[in-house]
Design a protein around this nucleic acid. Structure first.
Lengths: 196, 196
DNA sequence: AAGAATATCTAGCATTGCTAGATAAATAGC
DNA sequence: GCTATTTATCTAGCAATGCTAGATATTCTT
């Protein structure tokens, strides 16, 4: 009899509901509104049930972050498709910033709030690695040291996103900053190449 | 009689002790350990006294952040002095990253934790503007659009610092990333200039 | 020295993450 | 089918937090 399987599915579905509720509340009202009690209400179970799925609240945030990486990766791939070279770079950069600025709560889960998620290391979750690969793909044509340049590209986008989001740099100059970052990648290969 | 003045001084001194205690605890044990009760113990007054100095806990974090900007600005000026051009850029970039990585709690107060501090706007506190100016100073020789390039330089450094700190990019490649950022600034002027 | 203003404290509220211990439900053994 | 055991879930509560109302000292004014 498949009751064990059904139980497993039910459990997975409930876990998914928890993560979805956390993401929805966070995106609507911010992460402070995501309390364990509130999530318990939302899924119509008591608090301790959540702790049978996740070690603690941070683990729930981390689960939302993983969802965020899936979405970001999809957005970056979509942006890269149908263009090449410098245009692909620009489209990806714009898509990255659009994601960070349109989905601040999700972006916070991925990059600002404390989690144990790791990148660019052995044991990195595939969802995270895929995001990095999507960036690397558009960077590759312009350099030899792909890892270095991809990391720096990513860091630049991340910095622009977070500083703009917190009002520390002028939103009005976003396009100029994107252009500068793209240009930096284009000329970043070892030894100066003619701008592409 | 100067008792009013003395009272003012005493009050200012107490306020300074609060901020210093907050910074010390944060740097030793992290911001989670900085509770209002703990600060009250530290300065040997009761909790409500803190609320006569600061509107809420976030305002205390913001006060520490302002101290951080003073320190960062000093470090950047020091790094810039005695060198020019590309070397100044590199030294400043290294100093920025060293600050962010050596003083994570302070850096968090300045850039990660929620505060109302603004940059690059009317009404910005002078301590914050000074930091921006220190970056602008080393960027200026390389470009026309100083504000755009300074913001992008800063964002790149900020991104590198935060991603490296949270283990999302390889610490081993820091020098390569610094080199890329510096190179990007050097060639960032309107119209391609020969790399310096 | 009496009254007014200021400085400070005690005590408590409401909320949070998390958990021990009790109970209900499902499963297994016979 | 009935009982014993395991599994799933809940009730109730702890300790900590940010913050504040209201009471009490302390200092100033006249």
């Amino acid at each position: 009899m498949g009751t064990a399987e059904r139980k497993g599915r039910d459990r997975a579905a409930r876990e998914h509901r928890i993560v979805a509720a956390a993401q929805a509340i966070a995106e609507r009202e911010g992460w402070d509104a995501v309390t364990v009690r509130r999530l318990a209400d939302e899924i119509e179970y008591s608090q301790p049930v959540l702790y049978s799925h996740f070690k603690n609240r941070d683990a729930i945030v981390a689960a939302v972050a993983v969802e965020g990486f899936k979405e970001l990766t999809a957005a970056l791939r979509e942006a890269a498709s149908g263009s090449t070279g410098r245009n692909a770079l620009k489209n990806v950069a714009q898509a990255y910033l659009a994601f960070a600025l349109d989905r601040p709560a999700l972006y916070d889960a991925m990059f600002v709030l404390p989690t144990d998620l790791r990148f660019a290391e052995a044991g990195t979750r595939p969802e995270l690695r895929a995001g990095f690969e999507a960036l690397a793909a558009v960077v590759t044509p312009f350099c030899v040291e792909v890892a270095d340049v991809t990391e720096t590209f990513w860091a630049a986008l991340h910095g622009v996103a977070t500083l703009e989001r917190s009002g520390r740099i002028r939103p009005s100059a976003r396009n100029e900053r994107i252009a500068l970052v793209v240009r930096a990648i284009v000329v970043s290969g070892k030894g100066p190449r003619a701008g592409g």
